[in-house]
Design a protein around this nucleic acid. Structure first.
Lengths: 229, 229
DNA sequence: TCCAACATTATGACTGAACTTATCGCTATA
DNA sequence: TATAGCGATAAGTTCAGTCATAATGTTGGA
C-alpha cells in the first residue's frame, strides 16, 4: 500500500517484462490502477507517462493504454564537448588550431546552411589530442552572417566548440553518424594509415531559425560510441 | 495569465536561449514562478522537471535551479527493427538466413556474455535487403542457456530480431557504434568492395540479469544514422 | 443504409494544499 | 578552530478533486 510513482512504474514494468501483460494487451485504466496500488490517479499517471516516454506503452484517450507491440526502443547519447569527453577518461586534453580562414561558402555548404551566393564563412580546422595522441579531427564552418562575432574571435586557445557554447546557450541540431575512409591527409592528422575506417560525426546547428555552423568530426581509428538503454 | 506547463516551459526556454538568464545563473524558485505565471507550483514543477530531464537546467534541493554552464546535450535515437526501418523508407524488405549453427561459444563471446566454459550458443548469419539491395549484415549469437526456446526456432522465415522481440518483451541493452573495414567476405555480402568503410552497430542484451544475445550489424557502405535534438 | 449528432470514457492537464527530503548555512559546543 | 547539530529553504512527491480533450460507439433521423 501507499505506492510511490516509482513503485508503480517498477511494478508495471515488471508485469511487462515478465510477460504478465502481453504486447498489445490493454492495461487497466488509471482509476483502477490507482485503487489497486492504493494511491492517487496522478501518481499512476506519472508512472505511466514516463513509461510512455520511454516507448514501452502506448496511450490514447478513450482507447486506453496498451503494451506496445514492438516497443520503440530509444538510445540516449550524451553529446559532450571534446574536452570533457577526454578529461572524463582521465587523459590530458590538448587542442591545436590547424588553420583559420574566411572564405566564400562553397556551394555544397551553401546548400546545407541555406546561404545566399557569395556568403562568407569562417573555416576552421582543429585537432584534439588525448594524452598527446590524436583523438579527433574537427572541420568546422561557421556562418558569419548568423554569427558575426566569430569574425573577431581568436580560436588559437579556445576550441570553436567551447566558444560556441558560450556564445550561443542553446541551439537546435541535426547530428548524423557514419563511417568514412581516411584519405592521406586525414591519416596524417590522426596518426593512422590511409584507408583506415573512421567513425565520423556531422552536426548542423541552428539558432533562431538560422543555420549556424556545420562541423565534421573524425575520430581516430577504433573509436566507439557506447551507451546503455 | 493562466499558463499551461507548456507555456511555462517555452518561456523559460526562451529566457535561456535569448540569454536573459545566463548560464550558471539562478532561476527564481518554483513558488515565485508560479505566481508570475499565474499557475500552480505543480505546473511550474512539471515544466522545470522536463527541462532538467533534457539537460538544460540543473536542480538541487535548497540550492535552487540554475541554467547549466555547459548544457549536457543528449541525442535520442530510435532503435528500430530492420524491417520497419526499411519499410518506412518505402522500400521492399527481404530477409535471408545465410547460416545457422549450434556451437560451443568461442572464448571472446564467453567473456562478453559471461558464459561458462563449453556453453552452447546459436550462431546465426543473416542478410537484410531493401528493394533487393543489400542493406544490413547480421552476425548474431544467442545464449542457449538463457534462451533454450531458440534451439527449436526456425529462423528461415522470421529474422532473429523479430523473433526475439516476440520472445522477450523487454530487455536491457548496451549498444555501441563504430566504423570497420569490409573484409572480402563482408564486401561480397554487402555488394561493396573490400576495404570499404562500414558503419557497424554492436548490441549486447540482457534479460533478468542474464546475457542474452550479442549481435553485430554491419550496414552497407554509406549508411548514416541521423537524428535531431 | 448511411451519416451526423451526442453521450460516454479514458487520458491529459491543472489546482491548492500538505508532507517529505536533501542540503545549505548558521550557531553552539568541544 | 573545527565540527556536530539544527533550523530554514527549495525542490520532490503525493493527494483529491475539477475541468479539458480526444476518440469511440451509439442513437436517431434522412
Amino acid at each position: 500500500m501507499k505506492a510511490t510513482f516509482r513503485d508503480v512504474k517498477a511494478d508495471i514494468l515488471e508485469k511487462i517484462t515478465s510477460g504478465t501483460w502481453q504486447p498489445g494487451s490493454l492495461i487497466p485504466n488509471e482509476l483502477d490502477l490507482a485503487e489497486t496500488y492504493g494511491c492517487a490517479r496522478a501518481t499512476v499517471n506519472r508512472a505511466m507517462r514516463e513509461l510512455a516516454d520511454e516507448g514501452l506503452i502506448e496511450r490514447r484517450r478513450k482507447a486506453g493504454t496498451r503494451v506496445r507491440m514492438a516497443p520503440v526502443r530509444q538510445a540516449r547519447f550524451d553529446i559532450p564537448i571534446v574536452r570533457q569527453e577526454i578529461e572524463e577518461q582521465g587523459a590530458a586534453y590538448r587542442y591545436f588550431l590547424v588553420s583559420r580562414a574566411i572564405v566564400a561558402a562553397p556551394d555544397w555548404l551553401r546548400a546545407r546552411l541555406t546561404l545566399a551566393a557569395g556568403a562568407e564563412v569562417l573555416h576552421l580546422v582543429c585537432m584534439h589530442y588525448a594524452d598527446g595522441v590524436p583523438y579527433q579531427h574537427e572541420d568546422r564552418w561557421i556562418n558569419l552572417d548568423a554569427l558575426p562575432q566569430a569574425r573577431d574571435a581568436d580560436f588559437s586557445e579556445l576550441g570553436p566548440n567551447e566558444w560556441l557554447v558560450s556564445a550561443i546557450p542553446y541551439s537546435d541540431a541535426e547530428i548524423s553518424f557514419s563511417a568514412t575512409l581516411a584519405d592521406a591527409e586525414m591519416a596524417d592528422y590522426l596518426g593512422s594509415t590511409e584507408g583506415a575506417a573512421l567513425f565520423t560525426v556531422e552536426r548542423l546547428t541552428w539558432w533562431q531559425d538560422k543555420a549556424n555552423t556545420y562541423v565534421r568530426l573524425s575520430f581516430r581509428h577504433g573509436h566507439r560510441m557506447t551507451t546503455r538503454y
